[in-house]
Design a protein around this nucleic acid. Structure first.
Length: 293
DNA sequence: CACAGCTCCTGGCAGC
DNA sequence: TGCTGCCAGGAGCTGT
């Protein structure tokens, strides 16, 4: 699953090759037209023909390809998307949904088994990435997290996955960051104490940078622009290590569901939240019984 | 507004 | 062996 470290790895791979490249033509597979969000696939392909790529940026998990004549091609890789830099005539890549033919006999292929990926051609990138929260690698502090979490009673992991809160963190790095910070994924975000927030503000960029050093994590589908796997899956502390011993204390890693996602943590290193009051009559409410009409 | 739950999509895999 | 049905999950959408 491409999250920030994977998308940034792809961006760095593609940047030198794509800078100044000219798009000769674009082909969208008929069964993948809905992956092109705007404009309609035909207009999308026509408008890109002849455009030169001016630069490639990343915002959260989105890649923003600036076009010389203005506007931007924006790509989100979804769950299983890959952007592969190939040459015309190279062996076909399975699940290729969109092909950008470039000058010099090169091709940029968008392969995506599950079709969760999306593409946009827009005048202003803010139309797509404008609502994203801040970049976690740019000046994250405990204070900023506190402001972000202030009105959020959802589990802290759910808020970390919210791209409008913080951009670029997905399921792997949410679990890894919370482990590194020693915070239980079910703690309500707005219940974190200042020390928790400071540790989390350090843990998130550390986790992301370490993963980038390993060129991302490949579980099944992630590939870089050359089709190679990352290696960070061999270095994760908790993600998909259910039942295996915690590297710190030896306790078996637990797996629960949070915000609909498989969630992995160490029950010893990440202390559970204070249990909520039971739904039955609490001592408090029985002292103040509701007035029955 | 915040949040939970549903939807999309497909290959892999458990269970029968 | 081969079928059925469940699972994985990013993000957009709906309902509360």
């Amino acid at each position: 699953m491409p999250e920030l470290p994977e998308v940034e790895t792809i961006r760095r791979d593609l940047a030198p090759a794509l800078h100044g490249a000219r798009i000769e033509s674009v082909r969208v597979a008929p069964d993948a037209e809905r992956m092109v969000r705007t404009p309609p696939a035909g207009a999308f392909a026509a408008a890109l023909r002849g455009q030169r790529i001016d630069g490639i940026e990343r915002r959260g998990k989105y890649l923003v390809l600036r076009l010389e004549r203005g506007g931007a091609l924006i790509v989100h890789l979804g769950m299983t998307g890959a952007l592969l830099l190939r040459r015309v005539g190279d062996p076909p890549d399975p699940y290729t949904r969109v092909v950008f033919a470039l000058d010099g006999g090169r091709e940029l292929r968008f392969s995506d088994l599950r079709k969760f990926g999306n593409l946009w051609l827009v005048e202003d990138p803010a139309e797509v990435v404008g609502k994203l929260g801040p970049e976690p690698l740019e000046g994250l502090t405990g204070e900023r997290l506190r402001a972000m979490f202030r009105r959020r009673s959802a589990p802290v992991k759910a808020v970390l996955l919210d791209q409008e809160a913080l951009a670029g963190i997905g399921n792997i790095y949410a679990d890894e960051s919370l482990f590194r910070a020693g915070i239980h994924p079910l703690r309500p975000a707005n219940s974190l104490r200042r020390a928790d927030l400071e540790r989390l503000a350090r843990a998130i960029p550390e986790t992301l940078k370490e993963a980038m050093g390993h060129r991302g994590s490949s579980y099944r589908d992630y590939r870089d622009a050359e089709g190679r796997e990352g290696s960070h899956q061999f270095y994760v502390r908790v993600f998909r290590r259910t039942g295996a011993p915690c590297f710190v204390c030896g306790t078996p890693i637990a797996r629960i569901k949070v915000a609909g996602r498989g969630t992995h943590f160490c029950p010893t290193c990440q202390r559970p939240p204070r249990r909520r009051a039971s739904r039955g009559r609490s001592a408090l409410s029985s002292r103040h019984p509701a007035v029955v009409p």
